[in-house]
Design a protein around this nucleic acid. Structure first.
Length: 553
RNA sequence: UGGGUUAUGGUGUAACGGUAGCACUACAGAUUUUGGUUCUGUCUGUCUAGGUUCGAAUCCUAGUAACCCAACCA
């Protein structure tokens, strides 16, 4: 029936273009500005741009939009490249808008010669004044009618460094009464005596976004230049420059950027969280950055699944972060090695078990037989979770209670015979007996129990640290919430448990491995784990229908 | 007192004049040595008002709402 997936609007445009023979191949670009780390919003753009050329044949360039030297840095260039590679994409050419500075300068000279650009001595305040407002037309600059010769001379002087920052700008000569504010004689060049991360001190004038982006697309013969909705008004100017310059006609298409619930996505806000120490850095596992998601243990496949799953459209949206977590679990479930770790220990003594150690076999992943198995030590004294015992259990409680039986995962069925308490009445230990015939794999006891618990042998357990993460903010739509977004920061977004008890095989965990701590969630080693210390991040929890049930009650 | 963009269940996204579908969520059940996974089923939707048509989410008219545009940022 539905063997064909429906197309999104960009795929429809591309298929129509291809069918019309408009292009031999599709060329897109991913154009980050190297002034911050990539986040989930960039990931959707990356998946879109690279995904489209992969599907329809062609290629995608990585082009750094480095036209503002004061905010940009090579540190960001490197992190951006690493993130794209990790996501699983390969760019055809690594390019920089700054590669085109000389060409762009020539383009500007051409426009001056056509009488379509002029040097303006107005201050930024005066220019703002001239702009008018969305509902009122602007007014012409007094410098608007300089001769071509004078403009040529002044522009050359700007380049030669004869003026200070802000003293002069080059503007396009379009229409100060245009209903589109962007068309009211937009700035093309400004003076910045600043060091550029690639061109050094060669230039003191830098092109504005609008005079760099479209022309860069054109130079690279980008067929489909995809950006977000806030650039829709820029398209008219994008086309104007291309038309007047008579260069290759790239076309711009816009889609709605994706917003995620319970987090923020703007670079400005993310930077604030870092600078004001709400998080430990750009790759703090709570951040929505790609580097943070990588550190937290997300698989790149999950992020790609997510981007495909949410699709692409032009309407405003707020995607439930739970959907991202679904894709994270879905992938992890298939590859994570199962391990047993007790977070909040309660001691059990198995009174009828001998003073020996038995090594029991347990599968690494029930979803994947090829993942093999490992052995776990079992002994007379073990830990289980405190929450897995209740003295007065509610209905449908399948765990341990006085007189009740449970299965210890991959081991035996035990029965609780005696509850030992301290002077304050807290349960401190359980005396249990085990059923020798109930051994995992050759159970001849004939006993059926509802509950299975994870456990560790006390004398073999190794201490590890776990870091549990929750949503960064307390409200769904952070951007729409009243007041300062930081007021909604979730102080419980990070919980560190310095010492929990793990089965010994975790001693050899490596950074590339993914684990499921049975009944606890998905975990991976954190990069902070060094010289023997074991620190694990909880990537995402497991679905917990029992906890939900208890919450309802 | 301008211009632009958008409106489909709780969320995201399809349906291109012909049965409003898919995924997540929620709920109910089956299976389960993870209250995980898997499987089955159920609930909830076309911004409003008119019109055209045998038939409208889709076409027309008029409204309404949300978002974007007045950085020498991108």
């Amino acid at each position: 029936m539905s063997d064909e997936k429906s197309l999104n609007f960009l795929e429809e445009i591309i298929e129509a273009d291809l069918a019309a023979g408009k292009y031999q191949q599709i060329i897109t670009r991913f154009p980050p500005e190297p002034n911050g780390y990539l986040h989930m919003g960039h990931a959707t753009s990356i998946c879109l741009n690279f995904g489209l050329t992969k599907k329809y044949g062609g290629y995608t360039n990585l082009r750094f939009d480095d036209t503002n030297p004061v905010t940009e840095d090579t540190e960001y260039v490197e992190s951006i490249k690493a993130d794209i590679k990790w996501l699983g994409f390969e760019w055809k050419h690594e390019l920089y808008a700054s590669d085109y500075f000389e060409t762009l300068y020539e383009f500007a000279v051409q426009l001056i010669k056509k009488g379509l650009a002029y040097v303006d001595d107005s201050t930024s305040e005066e220019i703002a004044e001239q702009k008018g407002t969305p509902t009122q037309p602007g007014t012409n600059s007094p410098y608007r009618n300089r001769s071509i010769e004078e403009n040529l001379l002044l522009f050359a002087d700007m380049r030669a460094g004869k003026y200070k920052d802000g003293e002069k700008v080059l503007r396009a000569k379009i229409d100060m009464a245009h209903p589109n504010m962007l068309m009211r004689d937009p700035l093309m060049y400004r003076i910045k005596h600043a060091h550029h991360h690639r061109t050094g001190n060669k230039w003191c004038i830098y092109p504005m976004y609008d005079f760099a982006h479209g022309q860069s697309d054109s130079i690279e013969k980008i067929t489909h230049s995809i950006c977000t909705l806030e650039f829709v008004p820029h398209r008219e100017l994008y086309d104007w420059f291309i038309e007047k310059l008579e260069i290759y006609p790239s076309h711009q298409y816009e889609f709605a950027r994706r917003n995620l619930s319970y987090t923020v996505m703007s670079k400005r806000k993310l930077l604030q969280l870092v600078n004001e120490k709400y998080v430990a850095g750009w790759d703090d596992p709570r951040m929505p950055t790609i580097s943070a998601m990588r550190r937290r243990g997300y698989l790149p496949e999950s992020i790609r699944d997510f981007c495909d799953g949410i699709g692409v459209a032009k309407r405003e949206n707020l995607v439930d972060i739970g959907l991202l977590e679904f894709y994270v679990r879905e992938r992890l479930n298939k590859v994570a090695l199962r391990r047993m770790v007790v977070f909040d220990p309660l001691k059990i003594t198995i009174t009828n078990y001998p003073d020996t150690v038995e090594w029991l076999e347990s599968e690494n992943n029930p979803e994947d037989a090829s993942a093999g198995s490992r052995t776990i030590p079992f002994s007379k004294e073990i830990y289980i979770e405190k929450e897995d015992f209740m003295e007065q259990p509610p209905k449908k409680y399948f765990r341990l209670a006085p007189g009740q039986m449970v299965r210890l995962k991959s081991a035996y069925i035990i029965q609780c015979n005696e509850v030992i308490k301290d002077s304050e009445g807290n349960v401190v230990e359980l005396k249990c007996t085990y059923i020798p015939e109930s051994k995992s794999g050759n159970d001849t006891s004939g006993i059926h129990v509802k509950g299975t618990l994870h456990w560790v042998s006390i004398q073999h357990a190794i201490p590890i640290e776990v870091r549990l993460y929750d949503r960064l903010f307390n409200v769904e739509n952070v951007d729409a919430a009243e007041g300062d977004f930081k007021d909604y920061y979730n102080p419980n977004s990070l919980e560190v448990i310095p010492k929990v008890f793990a089965e010994p095989s975790l001693q050899n965990a490596t950074l590339n491995e993914r684990f499921q701590f049975i009944r606890k969630g998905y975990f991976c080693l954190d990069i902070d784990a060094q010289n023997g210390s074991l620190i694990f991040n909880r990537t995402v929890g497991l679905k917990d229908t029992w906890a939900k049930e208890m919450k309802k009650a």
